[in-house]
Design a protein around this nucleic acid. Structure first.
Lengths: 241, 241
DNA sequence: AATCCGCTTGCGGGAACCCGCAAGTTTTTT
DNA sequence: AAAAAACTTGCGGGTTCCCGCAAGCGGATT
């Protein structure tokens, strides 16, 4: 069994290799890649089927690399290893994981024992493991009730890009009023009150602020959303011809 | 000479201690603290005057710890060591550094040689060192002209919290129209156009999105701004009695 | 079948937002 | 000291945002 470690921090990478050697005696070789691009090339070249991947990397982040890898080899098992309990990453991961495969999400603050356990469970047993600290985000916002559904999340991204009501409604194929209802429930779920300590506030901006602070979105999410929107706009313009 | 290392990642901490031992032979003792709180207490108890500090920490971030430390011992030299080239942190640091002291801002991706150099330059020579990658942010926004001035930055934070025009104007002591002028220049400097690819957008939200993506603000900044605002609101309420 | 519940949609209105215009004030330049 | 540039402030108006109200639609319950 060969394992690929994709991690741009050399200390964490060598720590990982150390733990892998200890937890997985069946591993015959561990390969190291220091960013997402070389990672996906190593995976292709080396016929790798077990990967441990950092999520935050400069050249290409883990989610994007994983998407490419899974597109080529859907059975690849990937354990994500991240600094943060970040809903945006988890959402990105669980949106692209193929049914045939297995993945895990472990925080870098996890103990050595827990990391070893996750390595075995995901890479060898092919189960799904999600750190409880991360999973907590999935269901509970500090604000009101539960998680955002796909539709609300999509609207949140559009809102975050600065689109106006009409634009969002058009893009998502709903009426203006429906979109506004969606915004209403979004505000509620993000815990946006119409006033704070008796002072009124701008719900639209506050919603984005809450989403950023609660890590429902992050910089990578926003950049990806902007790219998707630009692409949509151009296809939309082409269609009109 | 005694050096305090404040860093919550044990690998980075031991690496740091290693480099310090190599670069600064005059160091007789290095002390380690794993979060901002214990860091500032160690600094107080140990009469420390040279510190290497991580910026992102769970319990108390580096900027807050530095503020406390500098308030007690303004001559303390602090080298900040961070994962990210993040304008918000640099702004936070340079806003509180006392004139009597020295500081540095080095990225964790810096080479060992550059880290050694920065250690000597800041902790021994008492000069200011800022990683060029970080300094780049200070002057250049991709959008239009240069950096935000203090007044604009303050308005940006208020906007980010979701305050309405009237609230911001009241808090910052300016008229409604003046504030709106401020917002106008803020939009310009952040590169917020009134429409993107022919589609209009919500400038207020877009401004926050740009600020987040360009790392002019980050989660810690927003949380700190919220705390300051809450404090201001309560003092304001007290004053009215 | 009748009822209920949730979601969608249109209409209308009050508040907030953004900006052009113009007059007054401060700061900088010449 | 005079002129120019920059900033502040009020007013007015067009647009957007947010929401209450009510009508329609579809699936689930009794």
């Amino acid at each position: 069994m060969r394992v690929l470690v994709v991690e741009d921090d050399q200390f964490h990478a060598s720590y990982l290799q150390d733990v892998i050697a200890e937890a997985l005696p069946e591993v015959t070789e561990t390969i190291h890649a220091s960013d997402g691009f070389t990672g996906q090339e190593e995976a292709r070249a080396g016929a790798i089927d077990a990967i441990v991947m950092d999520l935050q990397m400069d050249r290409r982040n883990g989610v994007e690399a994983a998407r490419t890898i899974w597109a080529e080899r859907p059975g690849t098992r990937i354990l994500f290893w991240s600094n943060y309990a970040d809903e945006a990453y988890l959402r990105g991961v669980s949106a692209i994981v193929p049914p045939a495969s297995a993945y895990g999400y472990v925080l870098k603050t996890a103990t050595r024992a827990r990391l070893k356990l996750a390595l075995r469970t995901v890479l060898v047993e092919g189960q799904i493991v999600v750190d409880r600290e991360v999973h907590r985000l999935q269901r509970k916002g500090p604000g009101a009730s539960g998680a955002l559904n796909e539709s609300e999340y999509a609207v949140l991204l559009d809102l975050a890009l600065g689109l106006q009501d009409r634009q969002i409604a058009e893009r998502r194929g709903m009426s203006l009023r429906t979109l506004q209802n969606r915004l209403g429930s979004l505000y509620e779920k993000l815990g946006v009150e119409d006033s704070h300590e008796g002072r009124p506030l701008n719900k639209r901006v506050k919603a984005l602020e809450r989403a950023v602070v609660m890590r429902t979105v992050n910089v990578e999410t926003l950049e990806a959303a902007q790219r998707e929107y630009d692409a949509w706009v151009t296809t939309c313009a082409d269609a009109k011809r």
